[in-house]
Design a protein around this nucleic acid. Structure first.
Length: 250
DNA sequence: ATACGCCGCTTGCATCGCTG
DNA sequence: CAGCGATGCAAGCGGCGTAT
């Protein structure tokens, strides 16, 4: 196939692009192509070796898999498909960026990088505001937390746990506390998103240990519950992250 | 006029997920 | 398990607008 044929096909394929890309709407840069079947983009030259039926770089390196002469149209269809897919991907990204502009004030004229920085700043501010507003309320935080303190003039202890929710968490807590022989007087529980906050008040059932020892025992027991590997596969952390992100289709 | 930054486009490569 | 199409990501390029 000569350059003209190749170029004509790309001219047809490129008809749906916006005005800004008209400069190279043939699918190649202006300096590309010659009658010998050499297609160049200023960064590299592609050569169709008709004897071998391979698309190779000008320096002889084979590009990808062997391309059969009869599958030229197939290869171009793949390129077109890929090009369209990339366009749709850019449109998705831009649509979400547009949504960001609607969510964060004064971002109409911002470039994309600045917009993203502004969104980050805005989200951080919202989190700070939410945290301040939730003081005194039982709202789970994003981070794991375990606080044990004396209240009620030292007669009662207050334990506050915040961690990722999992089905067996409450059962594990119950078992851990039963083993410690403490008397639970009151418990409060809340969940937000995938986090859970549990606050309970307990008193000692024996005077055999000091307050410090009791707090230490309770802390150790609760820590073991929080750090326990989840049983359910649904809640299992991934030990190895894939190099590539998982695909999500809407 | 020139430099520079932003943006969209194309394309190579890696990876995923399906199929025979 | 190999082959293949679809997809994600990044690099490189050229066009355009703006500052100097």
């Amino acid at each position: 196939m000569d350059f003209y044929t190749w170029n004509q096909k790309f001219s047809n394929l490129g008809s749906n692009r916006n005005d800004r890309s008209l400069g190279n709407s043939d699918g190649f840069s202006r300096d590309c192509g010659n009658a010998d079947g050499v297609f160049t983009k200023s960064s590299q030259s592609l050569v169709l070796n008709e004897q071998k039926g391979e698309l190779v770089k000008a320096d002889g390196k084979v590009i990808g898999k062997k391309i059969g002469l009869k599958s030229d149209e197939k290869a171009m269809a793949a390129l077109k498909s890929h090009s369209d897919a990339e366009r749709r991907r850019r449109e998705r990204i831009n649509a979400h960026l547009h949504t960001f502009r609607g969510l964060v004030p004064c971002t109409d004229k911002m470039d994309k990088a600045t917009l993203l920085a502004e969104v980050i700043r805005h989200v951080k501010q919202l989190k700070t505001d939410a945290k301040e507003a939730s003081i005194g309320l039982l709202i789970p935080e994003d981070v794991d937390e375990l606080i044990i303190e004396k209240v009620n003039g030292g007669l009662t202890f207050r334990a506050s746990i915040c961690c990722k929710r999992r089905p067996e968490l409450l059962t594990d807590l119950r078992r851990a506390l039963d083993a410690l022989k403490v008397n639970i007087e009151r418990a409060e529980l809340s969940a937000l998103g995938d986090h859970m906050k549990i606050v309970f008040y307990f008193t000692r059932t024996t005077t055999a240990t000091t307050d410090e020892d009791l707090v230490s025992f309770v802390r150790e027991a609760l820590n073991s519950v929080i750090e326990k590997a989840p049983f359910s596969p649904e809640y299992s952390p991934r030990t190895t992250l894939p190099n590539k992100r998982r695909r999500y289709s809407l």
